[in-house]
Design a protein around this nucleic acid. Sequence first.
DNA 1: ACTTTATTTAAGTATTTGCTTAAATAATTA
DNA 2: TAATTATTTAAGCAAATACTTAAATAAAGT
Lengths: 115, 115
Amino acid sequence: MYARRGQPKTTTRCRETQGTNSEAITAICKVLALAGNETRLRILFFLKEEGELCPCDFVDILEMSVPSVSQHIRKMKDVGLITSRREGQTLYYSLVQNHNEVLDNVFAKIQKIKR
Amino acid sequence: MYARRGQPKTTTRCRETQGTNSEAITAICKVLALAGNETRLRILFFLKEEGELCPCDFVDILEMSVPSVSQHIRKMKDVGLITSRREGQTLYYSLVQNHNEVLDNVFAKIQKIKR
DNA sequence: ACTTTATTTAAGTATTTGCTTAAATAATTA
DNA sequence: TAATTATTTAAGCAAATACTTAAATAAAGT
């Protein structure tokens, strides 16, 4: 009879703290999943460095196709990580300052590691 | 003739800073990609809270299958995010303190959001 | 030695993700 | 208003991811 059991006290404690933290974990996880893609992390990083940039800039910088860049941008806009401002034909994207307790730390670490 | 061009000064500057930061971005991105999965983020979070836990505990806490938990653990072990210590049949996993400038911030934020 | 428990590993499958090409919007310029 | 530029959106596909079931390894208990 296979009845694997974790340490009872510990697991019930964890299940309880999971209850209170579950939504926070889910929310942060979404941000991490977005930042956990090289193209998107680069986009975020350059927005941090430059303030605002248009899709067309990213196409040049990252050497990727237009729709590919646009689709990555969309995902980040959908969860409110970035916003846009239109100036004629071009859309300027920038970081939404808010989420960024986590992301700022990521950017800081990227700059610190520099070779 | 379609010749989309980003802002020349900006894009060349970005291409340069990308050169110096590329490896840092790639490295951090791997950690974020791992943490950007709910199961793994929960595993990391509970390791932070409890110090050390065995796969069997996570099966109970997260209500997932044994191999599924084990495979998630493996990925994090492979990049050195966690380590193990054996005690009889059971393996105790814990966080490797090192990477964690980024992860610690994530954990702090999870606890801060609490409902 | 045989059985049980804890865990991993392997193989197969379904879902998700990230790209591509093609078409649609939107603003500008001729 | 027709052509050009900037961008998005949609559809299709290939690669990656996360699960499942089944088999393998490892330590203990009987």
